[in-house]
Amino acid sequence: MIVPVMIFSINVQSPPSSQASYSAYQFCRALLRQGHNLHRVFFYQDGIYNATNLAAPPQDELDLYSEWQKLSKEHSVELVVCIAAALKRGLLNQEESIRYNKAGHNLAEGFTLGGLGQLIEAAAVSDRLITFGN
């Protein structure tokens, strides 16, 4: 059977403490294994917590934070974090940290901040948009 190659985008709305974030990650891995394209992973609501570089999970637990970064590195996947959701939850990049005069910044490498328009653009160009929520 010939499987069509599709463009996917993923909307992660759940924090790393919810299994939905892990499901989203496994779904991304699986679609890439099958040769589909992953246009963008958009982190919204509490999903933005997946993008912190300050989390230090115990060594005997999965480090989902690093897994997202590896995914992005290996497959050049765009990991976009909703800027409005991020700022109000205390997730900042260097630029926003300076703008709001905050003590530091904690957006992990591989992630970028972007507007909700990035979610809608992802919907516009993708064959499938899959939401993982909690």
Binding site: P4, A30, I130
Partner: peptide, 20 residues
């Protein structure tokens, strides 16, 4: 089904609604 089959399902169906 596996995660791989989950992906296949999303290809075979036209859209996905997530109930959470």
């Amino acid at each position: 089904i596996s995660y791989d089959e989950f992906v296949s399902l999303t290809v075979n169906f036209n859209r996905v609604q997530s109930w959470y």
